[in-house]
Simulated assay, not measured.
Amino acid sequence: MAPILDIKNLYKNYGSTEILKDINVSIEKGDFLVLVGPSGCGKSTLLNCIAGLEPISGGELHIGGRNMTNVSPKDRDIAMVFQSYALYPTMTVAKNITFGMKVRGVDQATQQQKLDHVAKQLQIEQLLNRRPGQLSGGQRQRVAMGRALVRDPKLFLFDEPLSNLDAKLRVEMRTEIKELHQRLGASMVYVTHDQIEAMTLATKIVVMKGGIIQQIGTPAEIYNRPANLFVADFMGNPAMNLIPAKVQSGSDASRIEIARRDGAPIVLRDERNRDLPEDVIIGVRPEDIAEPGYRAGTVAQEAECMVDIVEPAGADTYVVMQMGGKHVTARLHAETTAEAGKPQKLAFDLGKVSYFAPETGQRLN
């Protein structure tokens, strides 16, 4: 079966400025694709190209097996949910949801049937006679989603739909969107700059920077095996520790030395990665540095570390240390005995570390 969305060698220029460079991505029916990256990376432009709101400068774009490169937005069988909700202020919720069907000449009975079905799905039956001005941000968000759902499109497009909501409501709406996706089995493309949102919602993530795709993968692949330093630093909260280190390669193991501010370097022995260059940046997630016996995996290597700062955070306690001239964060359990200004034995899970080339930033293992 053809992918529901297939983008091949897509370019987008404004005059001589390249905004999107050689974008290749495809998703199957029922996938939840999240485009993530910092402001100005081109993710909203890419979404607008999929929607037909922006013409593309090169390449091809297929939806449901059909070439949409020169097809107008209304004929693409898509529905879009905007950040601003884009609701008509003078119309009731019911009319906002059915307006598109009315314009397309859908008969009254079908309009009512679809409205009832969607209102029930989104639990907004009691809001149908209100106007947008009488609704909370979360309720407006649901109405905007309802308007998209009644179209029953091939593809749903979401442009940062939760960024106007407060933190608590964002988490609730995120859960609702995820439930909706699972219930409908709908195909969705979703833009966000929030990497937590990307990790929790996506079946597939595209990480972008400067109009170029840095990595495509499942949330687990992106988190555990970042393709380069940018992805490693961008995805994850707290971010992955990225520590400069020296390597001596041996026939049975690599000896990894991490400089310390005071005292001898930390030495780790990695038997899995034996052909590393002399200079590397070692990437290790905060949860992969733990007290011996806690959480660290089967390939744990222990080292004595000097603790600078202890930050209790409920279920976890974060400790910050200096290694390789960088602040390094370890995520320890709540009852840790670690104290600021004192040494603490910690275990590094070498089964989960990433190595990057300092010059190119590319992953080495």
Rank of each mutant, 00 (worst) to 15 (best):
L155F: 00
A296G: 05
T360A: 11
I213N: 03
I196F: 08
L350R: 06
P132F: 03
N129I: 10
E28P: 00
D288G: 06
A334T: 10
A51L: 03
F348M: 07
F99N: 02
H181P: 02
I97Q: 12
R170C: 00
V118C: 08
P358R: 00
V189K: 06
E339R: 14
Q113W: 09
N129H: 12
I243Y: 09
G42D: 07
P238L: 15
L122R: 07
A338C: 12
S163G: 13
M145G: 06
F99R: 03
G293T: 09
Q141I: 09
M188N: 11
M101A: 13
V267P: 03
H333L: 15
P38K: 12
R285W: 05
A94E: 14
L332C: 00
D262Q: 14
M91S: 08
N228C: 05
A303C: 07
A51E: 01
M199A: 09
M91D: 05
A148Y: 09
I4G: 11
G133P: 00
A259T: 08
N365E: 08
M208S: 04
I289P: 02
R255S: 14
Q362W: 07
R272M: 14
K326G: 06
F32V: 06
A300G: 13
P286T: 06
T336V: 07
S26N: 14
D107W: 01
I19V: 15
P358E: 03
K29P: 06
R295P: 07
N224V: 08
M80Q: 01
G146M: 07
S44F: 00
D270L: 10
N9E: 15
V319D: 01
S163Y: 05
E291S: 12
G59W: 07
R147Q: 04
N241E: 14
A109I: 12
E125L: 01
D279Q: 13
T336P: 05
I309F: 13
A303D: 07
I205P: 01
V307I: 15
L10F: 09
G15R: 01
E197S: 12
L20K: 05
Y294P: 06
N129V: 10
I258T: 03
F348A: 04
D279R: 11
P292E: 10
N237V: 13
G58E: 11
K154D: 15
F356M: 02
Q113R: 15
Q83G: 04
T110A: 15
M240P: 09
G297A: 12
Y88K: 05
L47H: 02
D349W: 09
L364G: 10
D77L: 07
I266A: 15
L115Q: 07
T17W: 08
V143Q: 10
A334V: 11
I266Q: 13
D31Y: 08
G217D: 07
